[in-house]
Amino acid sequence: MPPARITVLAGHYGSGKTQIATYLALERRKHSPRVTLCDLDIVNPYFRTIDNRELLENAGVRLISSDLAGSNVESPGFPPEAASVFDDESVTAVIDVGGDDRGALALGRYSEQLKLESEILLVINKYRPLSSGAKDTCVICREIEAAGRFRFTGIVNNSNLGAWTTAEDVLASLPYAAEIGETLGLPVVAISAARRLEEPLRETVKPLWLMELYRKWVSL
């Protein structure tokens, strides 16, 4: 089945939405001539898709992002071009939404269009302190849906411990993701992991999205 024309990433604060959105936009570009990554984050002034502007544009992905993103002006600004991804049906789009229910508010105005041709993915990470339990994650999911006036269509299990992540950590998160999927009635559409974990995971974990780490701030 080909991917939906519009893919939306939403979820708990710090679950990895921007990372997955960047990955997906680059993947989509391999099959579609016109791919747009749209940054609708109105919560976090840091770690934005604009940090990867060069990478995305060199790969032929158009980035739609607020002029204020990455600046010293902290304003929940909406890029005026955002509406174009809904209107222009020749575009394959990935939409990166801000964290939690506060971030999902941004989607409310598009909730009617989103019903038509999009998949809306819940990004989860078992190793984040407020979403380490399946029940808590389901509560967060329902809050996001209520704020954004939409329903998720699937789950991306992005459970990781950053540079420390082992294959065992990913495997230990599978029952957690399954429980959330069962509770919410949603399929786990992918498990995402750092590319270095390909060898130990590729036989047992499917479908597996293997990613580079796209964002890096300073040389700490």
């Binding site: 710090g14 990470n125 984040r128 302190p129 411990l161 950053g162 420390w164 950590d169």
Partner: peptide, 14 residues
């Protein structure tokens, strides 16, 4: 236990 956490959140948890 191991968690993936922001510095600000780590202060709150601690």
């Amino acid at each position: 236990e191991k968690v993936l956490i922001k510095g600000n959140e780590a202060i709150a948890e601690a």
